[in-house]
C-alpha cells in the first residue's frame, strides 16, 4: 500500500512537511517561557512525518528516513539525562538549569539561552522517536507489512521469536480491513 494516489495530495504533503517542521522549530525555541516546548514540537514533527508517510507510503518513508525511531528516542533521553546530570559535576542538584541573556548580538539583537533548551531538544527527540515508532508500527501491522524492518528485528527481537504479522499474511483470506469489530 502506498497511500492515496492523488498528485495534489502528494505535492501538498511534501510542501507541508517543511512548513510543519519550521513551525515545530519555532515551538521548540520559544518553549521555555511561552506556550510551546519540546513535547509539542515533537508531536508537530511526528505529525509531519505521518503526513509524509501518507503521501509516499510507509516503506518508502523508511528508506528516506534511514534511522530507527527507537534509537532517536534513546538518543533524546540520553541527551536529556546528560543535561540533567551535568550540574552534578559542580555539586549542584540534578536537573538544575542555568540560563543567561546575551545582548547586542550582531543581526539578532538580544536573546536568551540556557540549558533548558538542550533538555527540551532531548524531549523533542524522545517524542518524535516514540510517536513515530508507535504510528509506524501500528500502521504497518494493519497494512500487513512487518512492523519491524530487518535491521530493527536483528536488534530488538529474540531469535526464537516469530513476528505475529507473519501468520496473518500467509492466510488465504482476502485482504480486507480486519480491525472492524462486531457491534455487540
Amino acid at each position: 500500500m502506498t497511500g492515496p494516489q492523488s498528485y495534489i495530495f502528494k505535492t501538498v504533503a511534501r510542501f507541508l512537511f517543511f512548513l510543519v517542521n519550521v513551525f515545530a522549530l519555532y515551538l521548540l525555541l520559544r518553549g521555555h517561557n511561552f506556550p510551546g516546548g519540546g513535547f509539542i514540537a515533537g508531536l508537530a514533527t511526528a505529525i509531519s512525518l505521518i503526513l509524509l508517510s501518507l503521501a509516499i507510503g510507509l516503506e518508502e518513508l523508511h528508506r528516506v528516513m534511514r534511522f530507527d525511531p527507537v534509537r532517536l528516542a534513546a538518543a533524546g533521553l540520553t541527551l536529556a539525562v546528560v543535561t540533567g546530570a551535568a550540574p552534578m559535576l559542580f555539586d549542584r542538584p540534578f536537573l538544575e538549569h542555568f540560563d543567561m541573556h546575551f545582548s547586542n548580538v550582531p543581526f539578532i539583537g538580544g536573546f536568551h539561552a540556557g540549558t533548558p533548551l538542550v533538555f527540551d531538544v532531548g524531549v523533542y527527540l524522545v517524542v518524535v522517536g516514540v510517536a513515530c515508532k508507535i504510528i509506524f508500527a501500528l500502521g504497518k501491522s494493519t497494512q500487513r507489512l512487518r512492523a519491524l524492518v530487518a535491521e530493527e528485528e536483528a536488534r530488538y527481537s529474540s531469535r526464537v521469536e516469530q513476528p505475529i504479522e507473519e501468520e496473518v499474511r500467509t492466510e488465504p483470506e482476502p485482504a480486507q480491513n480486519p480491525t472492524i469489530p462486531d457491534a455487540t
Binding site: I134, A137, L138, S141, T142, I164, E165, E167, V168, P178, T179
Partner: peptide, 13 residues
C-alpha cells in the same frame, strides 16, 4: 498506545 497494540495482538492471536 500500548493498549492498542495489546488489543490488536490479542485480536491477531
Amino acid at each position: 498506545a500500548y493498549l492498542v497494540f495489546l488489543l490488536y495482538r490479542l485480536f491477531l492471536d
